[in-house]
Design a protein around this nucleic acid. Structure first.
Lengths: 174, 174
DNA sequence: CGGCTACGTTCCATAAACAGAACGTTCTGA
DNA sequence: TCAGAACGTTCTGTTTATGGAACGTAGCCG
């Protein structure tokens, strides 16, 4: 599907979601309704100005109709991770991941930099995580924290798991 | 500054950052170099197709030249919170916030829906959080979890605090 | 110096995006 | 059953974004 078609579809979705008629949105955004009609069908290649007028009238960010933002995805044998946020401080970096662990799978991770700590908050299912030598079970809504500068693992012994994983590691200063 | 000017400036920044000449980028993206020249000066109102060709040739996401994405910001007397992620499951909603707590300030929060749990992982400073009746100190890199269906507070008794706050509340089914 | 190349800007004809009018359809109330 | 309104699509003339050519400038080597 072409880019114009995707944008048109998302525009229409956003409009319908707000129970606005095509004519009403055209009025509010000061866009010709013929223009809007063809836009929603993906038959036009809109200008930035037009898109801005429409998204402003809809009260949604411009980026929301341009498709999902590109994200860093890390896939392993058992774990899929999406980096959702990254913070840098004077002496440490914190990365927040949204992760999924496949049912009945276990994935080992090598030791990270000295001082690295990981946190997990389980959103769904029961995870088995922590140092290889002493993993723990973490149930829905629970949290666990462990030192990740030794080999550790992520497992889902009883059904798919979704969780938030937070990795925090010290910065080495030159 | 107009939208076209902002986009033009960001386009040029991205191009210069990659040590590309205007002519070279025009070749790679199959865009007329006159077009690109005027775009970078903010003297044109580009079409979606043109923007896409340019950002693809630059290897940057389309959204990166359209300005920072709008974010939900919640500001209180002591706490600023930015919603960075939101997950909906069958029976619970999870919201991930990036929060800052101002030094020597304390903010109380009313009780949330029954069953609501909050987690904090402190990235910098020392926070004082938890139920009003029994707040705890949480140092850099530490985590705490508490039931947020009673009045609770967020404080920074010794310097500014930055943290990740995760709020998890049950969904009521109709 | 003089040819050569690459750069960024300006000019131009064309294609297309635009606003608004005209149109056909559906619904509603008198 | 008909008048009126609102809807989404199609049509039309105008505006403008586009690619490419022409242009002026700055380096670079013989």
């Amino acid at each position: 599907m072409g880019l114009a078609e995707q944008v048109g579809r998302r525009l229409k979705e956003a409009r319908v979601e707000q129970r606005l008629s095509l004519s009403e949105l055209a009025r509010r955004s000061m866009i010709g309704k013929g223009t809007l009609s063809e836009l929603e069908c993906g038959r036009r290649n809109p200008t930035l100005e037009t898109l801005y007028a429409l998204t402003t009238a809809l009260g949604v960010p411009l980026s929301s109709i341009l498709g999902p933002a590109k994200r860093t995805v890390i896939s392993g044998s058992a774990v899929d991770a999406v980096l959702t946020e990254r913070f840098e401080h004077a002496d440490a970096v914190t990365e927040v991941f949204r992760i999924g662990i496949r049912a009945d799978a276990v994935q080992e991770s090598a030791a990270h930099a000295p001082g690295t700590q990981e946190h997990i908050i389980v959103l769904r299912g029961t995870a088995q995580v922590g140092a290889v030598s002493s993993p723990h079970l973490v149930r829905t809504g629970e949290h666990i924290q462990w030192a990740a500068d030794v080999p550790h693992l992520y497992g889902a012994p009883s059904g798919d798991v979704e969780a938030v994983l937070i990795v925090r590691y010290p910065v080495v200063h030159p």
